[in-house]
Design a protein around this nucleic acid. Sequence first.
DNA 1: GAGGACATACCAAACGTTTAGTATTATTGC
DNA 2: GCAATAATACTAAACGTTTGGTATGTCCTC
Lengths: 197, 197
Amino acid sequence: MLATAADCFSRYGYAGSSIDRIARKAGVTKGSIYYHFRDKEDLLAATVLDRIAEFEQRVQASCDGLAADEALRRIAHVCQDHAMSKDHPRFLIMLMIESIDTNQQVSDQLRSTMRGFRRFLAGLVRRGQQQELFRADVDPERVASAYTSAVLGAEIQYYQDPDSFCMDDALGHYIDTLLVSLNGVRTDSLQENGENR
Amino acid sequence: MLATAADCFSRYGYAGSSIDRIARKAGVTKGSIYYHFRDKEDLLAATVLDRIAEFEQRVQASCDGLAADEALRRIAHVCQDHAMSKDHPRFLIMLMIESIDTNQQVSDQLRSTMRGFRRFLAGLVRRGQQQELFRADVDPERVASAYTSAVLGAEIQYYQDPDSFCMDDALGHYIDTLLVSLNGVRTDSLQENGENR
DNA sequence: GAGGACATACCAAACGTTTAGTATTATTGC
DNA sequence: GCAATAATACTAAACGTTTGGTATGTCCTC
């Protein structure tokens, strides 16, 4: 039932998904949905919590015990897999935008999720710096913001134009240039390290 | 009237904006809107056309006659200004996502706009390569895709969290690393060019 | 006084929500 | 062990409201 709601919300948005439509698609009736959830907003809130938990778990599990540089590659790959999967990948992005001016509770939830994601990435970069995998003169927060932008933007473009937009190219190119800029190569010194992929 | 429609659509989405609401906000009544537009979809289509034209004009005008590297910096800045402005900046992104499964005509329009934007960027990179500003062994299409991702993702994060997300940091960091990677410095050779900003 | 630019009044459909009722399953008392 | 009770998981129908859309009236300009 949550899966069906996520599917409808991700396709048609919250306002565009009627309870009747969700119910019919789930093979039940409206009344049944109102038995489990107080109202439409409650259904949305439950769906959001469910999808956030899944997303966070997937990301954290994917780079467990990996080196910082490999983790950065891995996360991009996980997001790419997610975007190309069939389980309502647009849900979080759809609601991130739709709820800004329509549902403060959901908006706050998603906002803090995104902050957590950026914090997680920044921690990864900081770890890489401490292990001297990455050069120390880059700001981890800036990297995290730029990285998240790249992933988010690639997802949207892929959703909108899966035939023409190659997510692998976009994210691959970004991660490559990012890792090169993070590798301990100073721009004012000679290059000491040839591996950049 | 188009401005009011754009404002409502960008805040509440197409499904979430009632004609009555748009009319009241524009200081007219429903009847007046239906005098100028056939139906709600027609109003949306007109608004989309208007916003697309404004966006394309703004981008192209901003980097008229600029060198390729400066143009890349400029476009990011223009997108940043647009995101921080007050004239319904979320409109295009909101509809890009909402219309995927709900309005093929609008979706096609936005899709081809995004393709045009990427093509424009790729042309810019190619121009930079021909003028030997940029190294020749990067794929302009990949750069364009990654660049667009960064801009789009930064916009979304800013809309969702203007207090905590610093667009200037995210885009600044991306453009810096991109331009370094585009500068004619080979990774398998010595560095010849110290300027990276 | 005719036509353009609205406002007003209204309709049918769809919407979120509530209610009354019904099978099915679990729990209890004897 | 089994009937009585109660909780669970629904359905079908109805309610009031909102919606997109239309038909008609009114003003104001040329």
